[in-house]
Structures are given as structure tokens and as C-alpha cells.
């Protein structure tokens, strides 16, 4: 199970689009690095990214590498096909990162059955090539 694409329908892939202040996230993903936006002044973590630190209003925002480790905060299992590109059943997880501030992000799971997923389950990031040009972050089970 886990994420499995029916490549016949790759035209139904929603290519990420980015605002100017979001481009860095996807550029790093292409290089197989997970980064989050962080304020250079007050050190607040921001995800999804924004043009200004919501806390101290600074625009000195940088990309900082994530530990890539986190825990499942919530999840859903698609059991009925919505988009034929995605073979059902497949999971979407909302992961709370083990970084200094636990930002959350959405992604799919690798090599996992729906019934294996639980609240607080430890996961770590990996990367999944949708096409030669398109990479998305994905999570896999973590034992340590």
C-alpha cells in the first residue's frame, strides 16, 4: 500500500506552485532536503512559509534544515478514489516535526498499511519522485 501512483493519469498531478516566499521550500525538496522557514531575528519557525515573521514582523527569513523526524499528529485513509492518479487505499498524514518548534506538514506514507498508522507514530522524511522533474516529501516508519 502506501503511496502508489497510476502513471497513466500523471496529467492529474497538481504541480506545486509557490509564492515568491515559498519557492525555497520546493527548491530544497528537489535537492532532497527538508527545510522550514525560520525568522533570523526572533528565531520563530514558520510553516507554511510567509513573507513576514508573524511574531516579530521581521522580513529576515531563512531556510533551516529540519531533523526530518516527527510524529503522526493526525491522518486520513482514502478508500474511495477521488483522483485516479492515486491508487486507493492510500494514507495522508499530518506530521508534527521533532524540530525545536513542532511545525506540522502534510505528506503521504511509504511502505505502510493503513491499519499500522497511529497517533504519535514516529516517522522520518524521505523523498518521492512523481516524475523526473517533480519530487515531493514523503514519510516512512522510524524505529529509532
Amino acid at each position: 500500500m502506501a503511496l502508489q501512483l497510476n502513471k497513466r493519469y500523471v496529467k492529474y498531478y497538481f504541480e506545486p506552485v509557490a509564492e515568491s516566499f515559498e519557492e525555497g521550500f520546493w527548491e530544497h525538496i528537489k535537492r532532497r532536503e527538508l527545510v522550514f522557514q525560520r525568522c533570523g531575528q526572533c528565531r520563530e519557525w514558520l510553516h507554511p512559509p510567509r513573507p513576514m515573521c508573524h511574531k516579530c514582523k521581521s522580513e529576515d527569513l531563512r531556510w533551516e534544515k529540519s531533523t526530518g523526524k516527527g510524529k503522526v499528529y493526525s491522518w486520513v485513509v482514502f478508500t474511495r478514489e477521488v483522483n485516479p492518479l492515486y491508487v486507493v487505499p492510500f494514507e495522508v498524514v499530518l506530521v508534527e516535526m521533532d524540530d525545536e518548534k513542532p511545525v506540522r506538514m502534510v505528506a503521504n506514507m511509504l511502505d505502510t498499511k493503513p491499519e499500522e498508522i497511529s497517533f504519535g507514530m514516529p516517522v522520518e522524511v524521505d523523498f518521492f519522485d512523481v516524475t523526473a522533474e517533480q519530487t515531493i516529501p514523503i514519510f516512512k516508519k522510524r524505529t529509532s
Binding site: 498531478y13 497538481f14 506545486p16 515559498e22 493526525s74 486520513v76 495522508v92 512523481v130
Partner: peptide, 26 residues
């Protein structure tokens, strides 16, 4: 095209039912 959808749509996370299911599950 609207960039905020990029945090969900590329993962096949593409229906109102699934979005509400996510916070309902929690």
C-alpha cells in the same frame, strides 16, 4: 492555481471530505 493548495493537493489530499476527516480524526 493558488499556492496554498500546494501544501495538500500534490499528496492526493484533494477532497473536502478528506480535509474535514483530518481534523475530525484528531
Amino acid at each position: 492555481i493558488d499556492s496554498h493548495w500546494s501544501w495538500t493537493m500534490p499528496f492526493g489530499f484533494q477532497s473536502p471530505t478528506s480535509w474535514v476527516a483530518m481534523f475530525t480524526q484528531r
